[in-house]
Amino acid sequence: MHTHLALLRGINVSGHNMIKMDALKKALENIGYQNVRTYIQSGNVFIDTEEENGASVGFQIKQEIFKVFGHEVPVIVINKQDLEACFKNNLFLKEPECDTKKLYVAFISKELAPGAMNDLKMSMVKPDECQIDGNRIFIKYAVGAGKTKFDQKYIEKKLNVTATIRNWNTVTKLLEMYN
């Protein structure tokens, strides 16, 4: 049995793509996923399945959400090692007086190429900063997520990927739930 974490992008935000977590849980159980559990309303869903391939799981979840709720929702599936890497590889955490309230992680639909940092054109979003780590981008916002151009849409446009962003508190809680 494999445990996957599905990160749904753009549900229950400002009244758009509304999905109750109980209804989502039931829909995923109906297609055979076991031990389905959610964390907060923003679309963090743990599932257990025999399916090892995360991309396949993400595709099945995306299809079921469209079938049951009528919403086209991007889904990125990660595992425990992805979350652990957030703690091991995030250099912002090593800075003196690190303010974790300004730290976020963008989970990306594919491994990023070595030149991806240039593609982001970070000079356009200063003073925000980022670090690329495989299929993750560690973000440190200067002011906050609500007052930046460096958001999920910006990342998707510059890198031609699907992305979903979680704050550091959520990333921490998700790893605790995995454990």
Rank of each mutant, 00 (worst) to 15 (best):
V68H: 04
A116L: 09
K140L: 09
N79C: 09
K67M: 12
Q131M: 11
E72A: 07
K67W: 13
N53Y: 10
I31S: 10
N79E: 08
L91N: 14
S123E: 12
I19M: 00
P96S: 04
G58F: 10
G58C: 01
F66D: 03
I76C: 05
I139V: 02
F66P: 02
E95G: 06
K102M: 06
N17F: 15
F59S: 11
K110P: 02
D119L: 07
Y104E: 07
K62P: 03
G70I: 02
C98F: 13
L103Q: 06
Y33F: 14
K25I: 02
E84K: 06
D119H: 07
C86S: 10
N135W: 01
I132F: 05
P96Y: 04
E29K: 11
N79H: 08
I61V: 04
G15N: 10
N53D: 15
K140Y: 11
N53I: 03
F69G: 00
S123H: 08
S42D: 13
A55E: 08
I139K: 01
V75H: 09
H71A: 03
E64A: 15
V73I: 09
K94L: 02
Q41Y: 00
V125W: 14
V105M: 10
K20C: 04
A27K: 09
E64V: 13
T38Q: 05
Q63P: 03
G70M: 03
A23H: 07
T38N: 15
K121A: 15
E50A: 12
A55I: 11
V105A: 15
I137V: 13
G70D: 01
Q60R: 10
I76R: 12
Q81K: 10
I132E: 14
Q34S: 07
